[in-house]
Write a protein that binds this DNA or RNA. Structure first.
Length: 296
DNA sequence: TCTATTTGACCTAC
DNA sequence: GTAGGTCAAATAGA
């Protein structure tokens, strides 16, 4: 599948490339909202809550990985889409990009409209105006940077102010804190914060989408299988610690602490690049959504 | 009082 | 010298 994706992506036009990114971004965004709503709906329900949290986090991560791949220079069409398309902004001059300070530091790039909700908690520590860009770049550290010595940081830069606005998020270093997924209230706060007006703008439409997805997910977790997706959930069993770090499997709350002996096995060995994860969750097909993401 | 955010200054790669 | 990344003091809010 991965090879097929590469072949396909390498031959697509700029418009198609943008469309793929747009759809992935949309999926990622919906996953974030579903995560928020599902956690609220399933709160205190033990195993279903833990399972939902795990699945949704992995789905979100799968979208992030796909977006990262699609946004990488080797995947981009001839005309790179990362430059802001703001009126009045000139085409970027041929300036040699600065090298990362340390090439050994793992970096992942994602494009999303919900940069502030990715399952982790971040603390902003800086903001910088970047040349040839219309928006400043914000710098975040993991909230557990001090307490757990987590080295993870991310940079968020708005790329366009469309609907929804798109953000380029660069994740630097892996989490070693094994940050739990945000509690529903915290997630709602983070998502609906001043830096993310998305929910305000979409309001009723997306609330409806969320409710459809949540009810379907609840159905799945409750042992009822929505059309054609009953066995897909099991495919999503995957190690929680993406770094292989032993500490990554010892979160303080939420998912890993949830009761139940059959928590998805942290040693299942599924890699980040197992795209069957995303393939197994075809929201539109499995959940009866139309082409524009709305329920039929 | 504590915590998070803002913002100017500083450091470093190019 | 310039620009990106980080630090830390100042500030705001709970």
């Amino acid at each position: 599948m991965q090879a097929q994706s590469r072949l396909a992506v390498n031959s697509v036009s700029s418009d198609e490339h943008e469309a793929v990114i747009r759809e992935l971004t949309r999926g990622h965004e919906l996953t974030a909202q579903l995560q928020e709503a599902a956690m609220r709906a399933l709160r205190g329900q033990g195993q279903p809550e833990a399972t939902a949290a795990f699945i949704l986090r992995e789905v979100s991560r799968a979208f992030t990985v796909c977006l990262s791949i699609m946004s990488s220079p080797s995947r981009a069409p001839p005309a790179p889409p990362l430059q802001p398309e703001m009126p009045g902004s000139s085409v970027a001059p041929a300036v040699a990009p600065r090298r990362n300070r340390d090439d050994s530091i793992p970096r992942k790039t994602a494009v999303t409209s919900t940069p502030h909700f990715d399952g982790y908690q971040w603390r902003k520590y800086g903001q910088k105006r970047i040349t040839n860009t219309s928006f400043p770049r914000c710098y975040y550290k993991c909230s557990y940077h001090r307490g757990r010595n987590c080295p993870a940081t991310k940079q968020v830069q708005q790329r366009s102010n469309g609907d929804p606005p798109q953000y380029v998020v660069i994740y630097v270093n892996e989490h070693t804190c094994d940050t739990p997924i945000l509690e529903p209230e915290a997630a709602a706060t983070a998502t609906a914060g001043a830096t993310n007006p998305l929910l305000d703008e979409r309001g009723a439409k997306e609330e409806h989408e969320r409710m459809v997805l949540v009810s379907t997910l609840a159905c799945v977790l409750g042992g009822q299988s929505p059309a054609g997706s009953g066995s897909d959930v099991a495919v999503l069993q995957e190690p929680q610690g993406r770094t292989g770090d032993a500490s990554a499997s010892a979160p303080s709350v939420s998912v890993a602490d949830a009761p139940g002996p059959s928590r998805p096995d942290v040693d299942a060995g599924l890699d980040v690049m197992d795209y069957e994860v995303t393939g197994a969750l075809c929201f539109r097909d499995s959940y009866g959504l139309s082409d524009d993401g709305l329920p039929f």
